[in-house]
Design a protein around this nucleic acid. Sequence first.
RNA 1: GCGGGCGUGGCGUAAUGGUAGCCGCAACGGACUUAAAAUCCGUUUUUCGAAAGGAAGUGCCGGUUCGAGUCCGGCCGCCCGCACCA
Length: 861
Amino acid sequence: MAAERYNHRETEPKWQSYWTDNRSFEAKEDYSKPKYYVLEMFPYPSGRIHMGHVRNYTMGDVIARFRRACGFNVLHPMGWDAFGMPAENAAIERGIHPKTWTYENIATMRRQLKSMGLAIDWSREFATCDPSYYKHEQAMFIDFMKAGLVERRVSMVNWDPVDQTVLANEQVIDGKGWRSGAVVEKRELAQWFLTITDYAEDLLGALDGLTTWPEKVRLMQKNWIGRSEGMTFTFELEDAKGQKLDEGLTVYTTRHDTIFGASFCAVSADHPLAKGLSKTNPTLEGFRKEVAALGTSEENIERAEKRGCPLGVFARHPFLKNVKLPVYAANFVLMGYGEGAIFGCPGHDQRDWDFAHKYHLPIIPVVGPRDVEVSVSEGPYLEKDGVESVLVNSEFLDGLTVPQAKEEVAKRFEMAGLGKRTVNFRLRDWGVSRQRYWGCPIPVVHCPDCGIVPVPKSELPVQLPDDVKFDRPGNPLAHHATWKHVACPNCNTPATRETDTFDTFIDSSWYFARFTSPHDESPVNVEAAKYWLPVDQYIGGVEHAILHLLYSRFYSRAMHKTGHLNADEPFASLFTQGMVIHETFKTEAGEWVLPSDAIHKDGVWIHANTGEQLIVGGVEKMSKSKRNVVDPDTIIASYGADTARWFMLSDTPPERDIEWTEAGADGSWKFTQKIWRIINDIAELPKAEATMEVDGLALRRVAHRSIAAITDDLNNLRFNRSIARIYELSNAMVSALQLPNKPQDMIGALREAGNFLVIAMAPMMPHLAEECWRLLGHRASVVDTAWPQTIAALIEVDEVTIAIQVNGKRRDEILVSKDCDRGLLETRVLEMDSIKRLIGGKTVKKVIIVPDRIVNIVVAE
RNA sequence: GCGGGCGUGGCGUAAUGGUAGCCGCAACGGACUUAAAAUCCGUUUUUCGAAAGGAAGUGCCGGUUCGAGUCCGGCCGCCCGCACCA
């Protein structure tokens, strides 16, 4: 009986409505049940969803549906990371208000996500640009201020000249703005900072506890935090005439053992000492300007040579009365790290060596392999670990190992009161001020009398004005005629609002907590958060390994400190999925061509319309510029959401990049039809129970083993493997269905396998599963059906095929009962003709038996 | 430069130190069909052989082991992250 084709166009909207009407996926506020919180990184509403979203949200959805079937109270929410520059760019380029643009995009993308059939609790949806969301962000900021988590200070900032705003260090990539790509400049500005550095040690140490995070991400965070142990100590300074100066020079070093190899000191061009001396030294002033102009960016790219300018002052060596080290301003010393000043030891540091070489400074080797003359003419000796490296030319340190010498120097400095042991971090405080309109207003007022005054919580939110113009660069809030003029909340005299808005990474640093109580009057309902958090499974792109994930970890701690949460780590388990990639084509002229316009003909690729021969590009991340984007809407319309979801989960492991191919999509589509045929055939069979009689037993074994394997795979996010098991099960069912005569228990086994198949595929292809489930005669929805229980007796095997090796080479195999007696097995194997022939007259030295696996006969050669 | 990851059929991939290549795609052969599509069955690592049956094989070289795709060392190649952090 030929079944009709499965029609996704009717079925998918039907079941989506069913789930909505039945509120199938609204999380229950029943805190007595075991919970499972699965979250995918929420999208920026850029316009339309792309295949990367489809992959990301499909994975999360499979987990949500699977955990739900396993009996968990599942929270799987969705929202919008809705503040940001693209909305302002749309306003500038197309005259659309950022708010209109954003909410229109949200509407489109919400519709698209819903067409995927995601098991999301839409009742918890919010956008970070909703005043009802950012109101709480402002309230928490005020709490952070009171708790000492916020500082305002003038500092050198990274200025993006295109976006006309400040960037955090994390947002500067290769010296360029992470979004605009413009070369970043240095500027001095008063900025708001969150004191993430206070948590550096904690954020680093707690990484060890995040055992189910990818090792790679933990390592990236570790390197980013960049802990180093060393010493800060102070040199006495004197001028060219030998006159002692009032101020000393404090430096940071991790190699205080090499103090006797010091031949110069260097400070950053922005160091107060250099700044002060430049007032009377035009050459120095010129040098400072030069360095500032270059910024950090060009240098990185060019690997610029080390350059410096003498300050005309000298540092007295702390242990050698007669040695005076010239002090330079140098372009390779960073003001933002340590003290912004170093002592140079050219013999044991590449940068110092380069610098010394250029300016003909002494290069004194002070560490070397034991009993070997050290030469540093070709470059510095950098080895510092192990007992083989010892100090030389270093007075009281001679003969000590590097760690011993460090200890000795540290003691002497500490005793003399010249210095102390210091731990330094690469991590900087998080600058959060942005000179933009489309962000959360920073809730403070600047009063000429009272200074900085937080806006009282009763007056929150400080709402963005709608009437803004984007007719000139800079911050529209600052240009607004009236918005910033307010009375001081303290003294009521005329004052001005802060016109900077928050870095949008703040918005995404706590949204996962807001999802636990999205309508609460406080930022987060602590009881709800206590139940739902941490997120059990967080899924997103590895591009957020540092920024978003580190900020969120810090934010949780800050919220903990201010009583908004009671846990420090927001994400118990993290998974970073790969990208969606697609083939690319170019014309001879270098113009990108849509892959759908490329035709393979007679061994070459030609353009479908022009006939022009095309160059095959790489398989690359989908991007508009390369024209290799595939629109999810088109795919869902033609193939259906289930097919698209299935494709995203098949074949490629989730952490790797997946290549979108037409052939693969066709394959997935064919499989949906195959399932439909199988289930139709089964539905036509008479009713029967699965028994332990022999006819259906083989199929029952496959079914139960498949479920066991799929359960294990889904628990470990191995979607591709679980899909391979579903194929196996369906293949076994096709074979069984083709038998001409089916005994009762075979029919029972087929019916059971049919149920298993539908439940197992339901997390991946939920619409088809619902349709099949009804066809099999069930009343309840498959989303309300529990994951199958397997029968141990059907999973265990009673016979095993054991491979027989001779000297480690597979030669034959033997079928024996499970847990076969070792002696018996050995005897049987040694009596086999094929084995006897191979052994010949040689002596059997040993027989290794791995139960139910291998017999390895070791014979003398 | 520093740190990390990955190299398996034509392709995507699978394999608690224990029979390498499950499953899928593509390809080829066959069945059904007036024909095509769809579907179903079969073959498909390479090589020698008519077959039976051999031999080789997880980037390269070596090591540990009864046994290595898997563990260790050294290369080669590709990918990613950080990058003047003293």
